[in-house]
Design a protein around this nucleic acid. Sequence first.
DNA 1: ACCCAGGAAATTC
DNA 2: GAATTTCATGGG
Length: 274
Amino acid sequence: MSAFEFDLRGEPIALAETLDCGQAFRWRAMDDGSYSGVVDGELVAVSLRNCALQIAHTAGKRHCESFWRNYFVLDVDYKALHKKYAKDATLAECVKFAPGIRVLRQEFFETLISFIVSQNNNIKRIKKIVEGLCDSFGPEVGTDASGVVRHAFPTCETLAALTPDDLAPLKAGYRVDFILRTSRAFADDSSLADRIRAMDTANARRELLALHGVGPKVADCVLLFGLSRFESFPVDVWVRRAMAQLFPAGLPACAADTAGIAQQYIFNYARLNA
DNA sequence: ACCCAGGAAATTC
DNA sequence: GAATTTCATGGG
């Protein structure tokens, strides 16, 4: 059944910590400890067995092995990062709290809309609204191990054609207008996503900030989770508090070039270690 | 009733 | 330009 298997060679990764840490909103825990999710239009189940990451396809196989290696960022040496972060005792403590968190390389438009939904919101409700967007407007991709029918994330063209009334049942509140306007920006300019992808981080950030519903925090999350800019450092209410209490002198130098990866440990520590 | 949630836009000073 | 107000929704 397993289509792909990646020998982790001691690379730290925990499914619950990685797939349910507030960076991705569409992974669901199955009874056997595996996780089922929809990535780029494909329904897959992910599990850890014998120090290997296994990807099982439940309805056809669209993506190749390198796609999943890329999605799970297996090209980054987290053991080396942990060693580097250990130079700072406080950061090491944050890592130790959940060492299996890894950043994912997610699809750009889905990440953008998801983090527009995230503003002034909580993770539980973000998941509900994002899943509702998919259930209502994305094509069906299959049924997961728990019997739940899953759908792909809708395209910008699909979302751009909707009205506020169409989105009203999702109860996304004032974010509906942001979703629609940003979707239209990408539907009306079919090369915009590729242009942003190709920009350096500073220019991509400027371009993101020009979108309706995207401020500094959402832009930094999209840069980190949707464009793999690991130096990007999103600051939300949790990170703001954690920085004031744990790192009053600022982020340690050992994390400067991978601030976003360190941020995940800090965010998680602040949110779950209260 | 009040405060908070992976904030940002609109308004006012 | 910087500070403040408003925005919609659900949970504690």
